[in-house]
Design a protein around this nucleic acid. Sequence first.
DNA 1: GTCTGGCACTCACCGGGCACGAGTGCCAGA
DNA 2: TCTGGCACTCGTGCCCGGTGAGTGCCAGAC
Lengths: 338, 338
Amino acid sequence: MLSERRLEVLRAIVQDYVGTEEPVGSKALTERHRLGVSPATVRNDMAALEDEGFIAQPHTSAGRIPTDKGYRLFVDKLAGVKPLSSPERRAIQNFLDGAVDLDDVVGRTVRLLAQLTRQVAVVQYPSLTRSTVRHVELLPLAPARVMLVLITDTGRVEQRMVDCPSPVTEDSLADLRARLNSRVVGRRFADVPQLVQDLPESFEQEDRGTVSTVLSTLLETLVEETEERLMIGGTANLTRFVHDFPLTIRPVLEALEEHVVLLKLLGEAKDSGMTVRIGHENAHEGLNATSVVAVGYGSGDEAVAKLGVVGPTRMDYPGTMGAVRAVARYVGQILAES
Amino acid sequence: MLSERRLEVLRAIVQDYVGTEEPVGSKALTERHRLGVSPATVRNDMAALEDEGFIAQPHTSAGRIPTDKGYRLFVDKLAGVKPLSSPERRAIQNFLDGAVDLDDVVGRTVRLLAQLTRQVAVVQYPSLTRSTVRHVELLPLAPARVMLVLITDTGRVEQRMVDCPSPVTEDSLADLRARLNSRVVGRRFADVPQLVQDLPESFEQEDRGTVSTVLSTLLETLVEETEERLMIGGTANLTRFVHDFPLTIRPVLEALEEHVVLLKLLGEAKDSGMTVRIGHENAHEGLNATSVVAVGYGSGDEAVAKLGVVGPTRMDYPGTMGAVRAVARYVGQILAES
DNA sequence: GTCTGGCACTCACCGGGCACGAGTGCCAGA
DNA sequence: TCTGGCACTCGTGCCCGGTGAGTGCCAGAC
């Protein structure tokens, strides 16, 4: 077990390294922090911390830098979540309040998060399966062609073309629309399959083909869109540590382009509470030099999606976590209002 | 006026420089191209080309590289558009054919273009004002709350909340919906304002408030969304020439994040035919080291939006232009089919 | 036991000096 | 008008020694 002071030394190392981006030595540490001991003592502590794998030397005769394990300990035991200042909170609220639709909410959230944390922001669109149905619309476009539109309580809209096996009358379409809506409005999308299961049977023989075609498109949409959508922003922030990673930036950009990877990343985050994945804790290789701070957000108690940031392992964890949490809360509020 | 051979020398310089990324000297030129003259002669030609401002030396005793003006001449006079190979064409078609909705079409297009050109791809969503109305839907959500949904012939969907001054009955909403649609379906969005101008007058006094509220939201949406949306991809390709611009990459990423800038960029492109903007020809400072190749695409003869790529001025213009043109054509086809 | 000051050692970094070679401009001659 | 030759420039790579931050270890103090 590490003594109190050694933990203090680790904290000091993390803080200094995050600030200066340079390996930190024993002398500098004692000068910048009131540890109450001499550099020699700190050196002994550092040697112990290195033995335990919390810090490392880039090369002999250089200062120490935290390892992933060191950051882990720092995040778990040594760092709190730094709350935002009240001007910051007000700025968030003002900025998000101006949004006109869901795309705008998500877009603004991404920009906000990127700006606050000065890192790459990732925001997932509210999940379909966790949202509830606000309305299902069926629009006749041609005799045997219908457009299916799904609207969620979070403002998300999905549409699909449906080619029906036979021409559909305006009346039977209205009938289907009415019955469909009466069953599913207000229910969660995840429950829709069950709710509509026996719907075709209640129709006349001649309409059943159309009904099942429409329903199967509806169910397909739910499945397809379970691979959720997301928006990213602030990639220019990656260049801030271009001297850190001159070439490491490439795999990160590549990973960010593969939305599947990011969705998996966010998916791995806990549903409630904040998740921090540090360096090699990320399964994806390209992100081995980065940390991911993610949190769920939602209009009610339940998380409908997640958001977070991707940055260098050498990041200001307390500040980043504070910003991520605050933004998630406000977005939740905005969604609940709309 | 430049002699035929000097133009040939310029072409050779551009080709070599694009291939090797290194300043090209007179000796190397004569070795790699059949110019039929000695290095000394080429040197004279190069001196002349430099006097005219088509090429430059990074420093004394280095080879020459093309200037923006040199690339301009190359694109205008010396280079054709390189058509894609037929396997490439097939691949494009197959890839785009799998798209399920507009978002998917645009997403696939971006990925495709980025992959083909190995550069950053930018695709604008079909413009609202240039599209035609497929359907306008009004959904009652609460007594005095209506959701307005616009659907275009290109598959784009926009929705807005409308808070009405007084409760609306299902009947009067249906009435409005019917009359609205009969006026605007099949017409261009740009013409909608005129078409609905006198609509409120034809309603009973009690409904006029609601009608005008709905209409003004509709018109607002048209205005707001005229600042079009777009999608970008392939930013990881920027790292390919990270030794070219170690720090120049940052302003480019920043410019790419500002969609307004990109939209202006695409907006400046000619409606028909391909537009190539080279280096300093781009108004935005961050893009002074890049070239933009853009072209309009559409479901019919008319362009409904634009797409293009952003890359280093040192790019393979014939190949890039070929890819951009081909992709634009196929996307147009896909949109026309849907 | 724990902390401290001292001391020798290691190495990354920096700047200077130097050789190399690609590339140029110019000139005289074909 | 083209060509070969020649002197010149200057960026690049390499070696080398000095500097200094930082370390590990040890003997002595509290």
